[in-house]
Amino acid sequence: MSTSMRITQRRTPKISSLMWGALALFVAALWAFPVYWMLNSALLPNVTLQSSTPTFIPFGGSLDNFVAVTASGTFFSALGVSLTVTSITVVCCLSFAFLGALAISRFRFRGRKGFILALLLVQMLPAEGLFIAQYRMMANANLLNSVLGISILYIAAVVPFTIWMLRGFVTGIPVELEEAAMVDGLTRTQAFLRITFPLLAPGLVASGVYAFLQAWNEFTIALVVMTSDTSKTVPLWLRGFMQSSATRETDWGQVMAASTLVSVPVIIFFLLVQGRMSSGLVGGAVKG
């Protein structure tokens, strides 16, 4: 009896673990399907996509759609705008946030708690709650459709969380290291630059990628303040590309190729910082 019990005990977990495994694979397929479908459609010619039965594997596919998308020229103009805006945002955010993180993690000063509180609250403000006012402000300052204007809005939107993220890294480096260097005769600034700064590199990279992703993907503010055709950022261009082809018969192959072009760099960068970003959002609630 004991042997038969042991056998059933061993077999049931096996069957159920197979079931759970199958379920997990099914869910994985479900979640990855839109991404797969984007790549699949991007490789297929429009004739195939217009048939009433979908083609699930891109046999005989080609890169024609990608060629067509990039040939239109508007893609590169949008790419230029996005690259400029994103670079300005990343550089400014990193330097501002670096100083800010230093202030709140290495100094105890009056108003520190209030500042942290304000940072976390501001970071949660929805863009839709302010964008009409920001639009007016930009219009009054003649900064509509300008790279500078939208960069200022992006820096303000991204810098709070960047400070919060970097602060975690700065706190993680013991002050004792700096103090030891100061005992050895370095000034506080020297100690910081030579000892702490190099150790912060991973934090700066993670925060930089975070700022990059935010600025690169942003849609809402851009929609409001970048209204002219020549000042479109990549997300706005993609939306416009889909709309312009929607008036005729939508060329989904090209739209998906365009989406792929926009997504691939983002996915690569995202995979680099994913862990850091989510642990920043849930704070000390998840350790390790």
Binding site: A28, P235, S263, I267
Partner: peptide
């Protein structure tokens, strides 16, 4: 990996794919 792919998709690109779906 599948979940990360979905998470990493830029919003606007994901929307175009879903509209096509």
């Amino acid at each position: 990996t599948a979940l990360l792919l979905a998470w990493a998709m830029p919003l606007v690109a994901a929307m175009t794919v879903w509209i096509w779906l």
